[in-house]
C-alpha cells in the first residue's frame, strides 16, 4: 500500500498557489485510484495554518506543517530540512509536489536525503493497473516517456498547467507541526529579495493571454535591402503594451543580443523559448519572422491556439505547427495591428 504526501510551500501572503492546487488535484486522484491509499498534506512556510485550512476538505489523513521564520524564505538548506522532515513524518512512499522554482531547487536533494528517487518535468500521473506511473519529458520537452519506478520514496514534481487545480471546501485543518531545528550551517545563505525589471520594461508576463514570439527575421535585411531593428523594436514594444502580451524570442534572435548585432534591446536570455529556453503556457501564441524546426518550435508546444506571420509559406515553424499562417510582411501587419489595437 502506498502512502501519499502532497508537499507544498505557502506563498508570501500565506496562501497556496494555483500550481500547488494542481498538484493536490493530481495527488487526490492518485489516492482515489489507489483505492484509498492514505494522502497526507505537508506544508512549509512562515505560517501554514491558513494554507492548510484552504484545502481542509481534500480528505487528507493528516495535515503536517513545518513553520516559522526560518522557513519563510526559499532557501535550499532550510527548505530541504523541512521537506525531509515532512517526508519522514508522513512515512510517504510517493510524494507529489508542484514544480515551482522553490521546490525544483530543493526536492531532488531531498530525494537523495531520504534514500529515494525523483522525477521532474512530470506532465501526468496515473495509477492504471494499481501502481503509480508518471509521464515526463526528456531531452527538453522533445520526448515524452511513461515510466514506473520500483524505488520508494518516489518524489514526483509536477509541471504547471498539467491538471485541474483541486477545488473543494476550505475549513479548519488541524496541522501537526513537525519540529525542525536548523543548525547554523543551514543559515549561511539569506534570501534578500527579488529583482525584476521595472513595470514599463516588463516583457515577460506569465499570466498573459497571448505569447508573442519574435524571430531573428526582425533584425535581418528587409526587402528594401536595409535592416530596421529600431522600428522592429518600437513595433514589438507597442504591440506588447497594447495587447498586454508576453514576449518570447527564438534562440537565434536572443543570441544576436550577445553579438553586438542589430538587436532588440529589451530581449534577454530570459525571453528565450525553445530547446534551450523556456516552454511557457499561454492560451494563444502569435509568432512573427520565426524560422526553425523541431528543436526551436518546442518553445510553443504549450500554446493552445497558434498563429504565425511569415513571408515564407513553407517555413517549418508555421507549417504543421500553427493553426493559421499569414504569408505577409510582419512589419506591415504589426503596424496595422497596433493601429487597430489603439482604436479599441
Amino acid at each position: 500500500m502506498e502512502t501519499l504526501l502532497f508537499l507544498a510551500h505557502v506563498e508570501s501572503d500565506g496562501s497556496l498557489a494555483t500550481q500547488a492546487r494542481e498538484a493536490l488535484g493530481a495527488a487526490r486522484e492518485m489516492a482515489d485510484a489507489l483505492s484509498g491509499a492514505p494522502l497526507h498534506v505537508g506544508v512549509v512556510g512562515r505560517d501554514v495554518a491558513a494554507a492548510a485550512g484552504s484545502i481542509a476538505g481534500c480528505g487528507a489523513a493528516r495535515f503536517l506543517g513545518v513553520a516559522g521564520a526560518d522557513f519563510s524564505q526559499p532557501r535550499y538548506a532550510s527548505d530541504a530540512a523541512a521537506a525531509e522532515a515532512l517526508c519522514k513524518a508522513a512515512a510517504a512512499t510517493v510524494v507529489i509536489a508542484p514544480a515551482t522554482s522553490r521546490w525544483c531547487r530543493v526536492l531532488p536533494g531531498v530525494a537523495q536525503r531520504v534514500g529515494g528517487r525523483v522525477d521532474t518535468h512530470v506532465t501526468g500521473i496515473s495509477a492504471d493497473g494499481g501502481a503509480p506511473s508518471v509521464t515526463r519529458w526528456y531531452y527538453r520537452q522533445r520526448m515524452e516517456a511513461t515510466l514506473t519506478r520500483a524505488h520508494r520514496p518516489w518524489i514526483i514534481v509536477l509541471d504547471p498547467g498539467c491538471g485541474a487545480p483541486w477545488k473543494g471546501e476550505a475549513g479548519a485543518a488541524t496541522v501537526e507541526v513537525v519540529p525542525v531545528k536548523l543548525s547554523e550551517t543551514c543559515r549561511r545563505t539569506t534570501v534578500t529579495g527579488v529583482q525584476a525589471p521595472p513595470a514599463d520594461q516588463q516583457t515577460i508576463r506569465p499570466d498573459a493571454g497571448l505569447l508573442f514570439v519574435a524571430g531573428a527575421g526582425w533584425t535581418k535585411t528587409q526587402p528594401d535591402g536595409k535592416v530596421h531593428a529600431a522600428e522592429a523594436a518600437e513595433l514589438i514594444l507597442e504591440f506588447l503594451r497594447k495587447a498586454q502580451a508576453s514576449l518570447g524570442g527564438s534562440k537565434s534572435l536572443v543570441d544576436l543580443t550577445g553579438e553586438g548585432q542589430a538587436v532588440l534591446p529589451f530581449m534577454t536570455h530570459l525571453n528565450q523559448i525553445g530547446q534551450t529556453g523556456a516552454t511557457p503556457r499561454h492560451p494563444k501564441g502569435l509568432s512573427a519572422c520565426c524560422h526553425g524546426e523541431e528543436p526551436h518550435v518546442v518553445g510553443w508546444r504549450f500554446i493552445s491556439e497558434r498563429r504565425a506571420i511569415n513571408l515564407d509559406p513553407n517555413c517549418g515553424w508555421a507549417r504543421g505547427k500553427a493553426d493559421v499562417l499569414y504569408v505577409a510582411d510582419a512589419f506591415a501587419v504589426l503596424r496595422r495591428v497596433n493601429a487597430l489595437l489603439g482604436e479599441k
Binding site: H291, E293, D312, N314, C315, G316
Partner: peptide, 9 residues
C-alpha cells in the same frame, strides 16, 4: 522541404 528548411532540418 524548402531550401531554408533543409538548412535547418
Amino acid at each position: 522541404v524548402s531550401h531554408q528548411d533543409a538548412l535547418l532540418l
